[in-house]
Design a protein around this nucleic acid. Structure first.
Lengths: 231, 231
DNA sequence: CGAGTATTTGAACAACGTCAATCCTGGTGG
DNA sequence: CCACCAGGATTGACGTTGTTCAAATACTCG
């Protein structure tokens, strides 16, 4: 049943970091890696633990969370399929990594993975570029967390999710329907607000006619302009 | 007067990225770089412009700011001497870089600098590690922006500045005096609040006896425990 | 010394959080 | 197939924090 553990039929072979390797090189990496499935809510790594593994997300969604000593939490990053997870060259993990949905990863022990990086400049460069992109995204989120109103945060989030759901292509002008990968609570954790405020904003957008809600996860963006509208 | 433009007597020769190069390699880089002085408030690069240069900060402090279309601003990063500034492998700059004090940089045109990176894996690895560190810091700041109270933000900021002022060494237990490199307005921009709230928090800490203010910039941290205290 | 700017202070207000109750929904077992 | 249950989501009333607007005061630099 588990004959699918080779890179050849990996769903993210061409979009993950591995895209920088030819088939031969991939063999070597394959020997290092092992698949791991996570259930929803399962933790891959705890903040403060030694940073022993890293890898590529194959399917599902992960969240990276930071927390204060007294337990307040904030989601500081989300990982989607083909994203790299982990922190080479680091002693300890700074953030907790948790599966938001059922997820599958291809994991490598950190030390040998670093050696692979050292031998494959192209891969290391790709990782550098991804890290730059993650940094830019984190900084853009800092602006949002600090300066946007609750309404702006929620609409921005919905538009981001819609972009992702439609494959990040130029968006069709018509309505878009998709499932949110996060609960209300997780949305609140991403946006730096409370679950109640998220819920109220969604209700407001619904009664304005900008969106439709279907169950806890389903959402349709009806009118992009209305959604963006200031009032 | 400007005979000091060589790497040999560069103040950050051993702490910037250049530390990964030997003297010979440094020669080649030196041919590429040019010094630039910025006055307080001067802008090095605007968000949205083509990302044409990058370099090392030699002296002074820079701020990276993001802003909303309607003009709200947030400082998403600060750069100190020996920090790398700029974004190799990027099309456009995402953030505006401005001098917060008089500053001096060693700048490289991006394209040739990328070629140097490609030829010097050690330097590229160092840049990757710095970028990881910057990412971790940005994410930690996301937690602070989203979840800390105004009081916690200000005390945290003061303690960070004190650490930096004392050279990031284990802090002596006694009072620490130093000059803040930022105005109240810039502190507010960093912490995601208004100038008035920053000022009120400082006044509160002063009347509590935790700090002393001297002029607009001078500050003494009198009692670390009192400063951290919840009330 | 004095103009211009930064900072402090005050009062009123709005946005968002908190607490608490209720509703929905998706899954489970009879 | 339906009733029930538990966790998630919504809604409401109210309190708090931090913003806004406005004015006074203190610095800094020429």
């Amino acid at each position: 049943m588990e004959a699918t553990n080779t890179c050849a039929d990996c769903a993210v072979r061409d979009s993950a970091l591995c895209a920088s390797l030819n088939d031969g090189e991939l063999m070597a990496l394959n020997a290092l890696g092992r698949r791991r499935k996570l259930a929803r809510g399962e933790v891959l790594a705890w903040a403060g633990d030694d940073s022993l593994i890293c890898g590529n997300l194959i399917s599902g969604v992960l969240k990276l969370t930071a927390s204060t000593p007294d337990g307040r939490e904030q989601i500081v990053g989300l990982a989607y399929p083909a994203d790299f997870v982990g922190r080479p060259y680091a002693g300890q993990a700074e953030f907790t990594v948790t599966a938001v949905s059922e997820a599958e990863l291809c994991l490598f022990p950190r030390a040998p993975f670093e050696r692979v990086l050292e031998d494959h400049a192209r891969m290391e460069r790709l990782l550098l570029q991804r890290t730059f992109a993650a940094l830019d995204e984190a900084r853009a989120r800092m602006l949002a967390l600090a300066r946007l109103s609750a309404a702006e945060k929620v609409t921005g989030f919905l538009l981001d999710m819609a972009d992702r759901a439609t494959g990040c292509r130029a968006m069709p002008p018509g309505p878009v329907t998709f499932d949110l990968p996060l609960t209300r609570g997780e949305m609140a954790e991403v946006l730096g607000m409370t679950i109640e405020t998220v819920s109220r904003q969604l209700t407001r957008l619904k009664s304005k006619g900008a969106i439709t809600l279907a169950g806890a996860r389903g959402i349709t963006i009806r009118d992009r302009e209305l959604l963006r509208g200031r009032d």
